[in-house]
Computed example of a mutant assay.
Amino acid sequence: MVVTWSDLSQEIRQMILSSLGSSGTSIAPYAAVSKEWQQSIEAKNFKHLAIRYEDFDAFGKLSRPHQKLVEHIQLCMELKEYDCNSCESYTLQRNAIYNEWMLNRSTTQFFKILKNWDIREEGDPGLTLEINIYSPSDFKHAFKHYEHGNHPTDDGGVQNITDARHGWYYGLRLDPPDAATIDRVHGFVKQDYRL
């Protein structure tokens, strides 16, 4: 006797669908198996979105049914890289001007897209927005142990780092970063929204 997918109980089918992608591989190709698989996989894939400026075109074309599946948006805004001279003083003026322009452009464009989404109705999941602003250089200098956006640091590498210029000795931070360095990573960002 051959057992088909529809012969399985709902609980067993859910267990099978839940196990897909557990090894870190993409589950998107499995959405083509059936309508049931498509609904389950899309709910999982669209629940959490990590969006960068380069993704705005695709993000803006997200269908209304897919928009309703989104519960968490991680907006990742990458600033220009800086070198140790900038690190010790402050971001060079040209980087600061570019960074401010890019942040204003990114946030304005993002909220223009988001304002076209349907208002969530009673019973719909809420929508959480997480904004991550970082420079790839943050991981190379004083903040080697930080994770920003979808660029996690390699924890195994931190344990062996000795970088006296940035306060690291054998993987431990012994000297705290100065106020300007902390302000660069955790400081206030002025935004001017015109939607």
Rank of each mutant, 00 (worst) to 15 (best):
P29F: 07
N45I: 14
A31C: 06
E36Y: 03
S26T: 11
A31R: 14
F56D: 06
S23D: 15
V33A: 03
D57W: 12
Y53D: 12
S26K: 11
S34N: 07
A28F: 11
A50I: 10
K44N: 03
Q38S: 05
Q39W: 03
L49C: 12
D57S: 11
S34C: 03
V33D: 08
K47F: 08
Y30C: 02
Y30K: 04
I27M: 06
S23A: 15
N45L: 15
P29N: 10
S40F: 08
A58W: 01
E54H: 05
F46C: 08
K35E: 00
S40H: 07
H48Y: 11
Q38V: 02
R52F: 03
Q38P: 00
E54Y: 03
A58V: 04
A28N: 09
F56K: 06
A58N: 08
D55K: 11
A31F: 09
I51N: 00
I27W: 04
A43R: 12
A31H: 02
N45T: 12
P29C: 03
Y53K: 15
V33L: 09
I27Q: 02
Y53H: 14
F56E: 10
Q39G: 08
S40E: 12
Q38M: 11
A28L: 15
Q38D: 00
S40A: 12
K35A: 04
S26Q: 10
V33I: 09
S40N: 05
V33N: 01
F56S: 06
A32Q: 01
R52A: 13
F46M: 13
H48R: 14
A58C: 05
E36I: 04
E54K: 10
E54D: 10
E42R: 15
I41A: 00
E54I: 11
E54P: 07
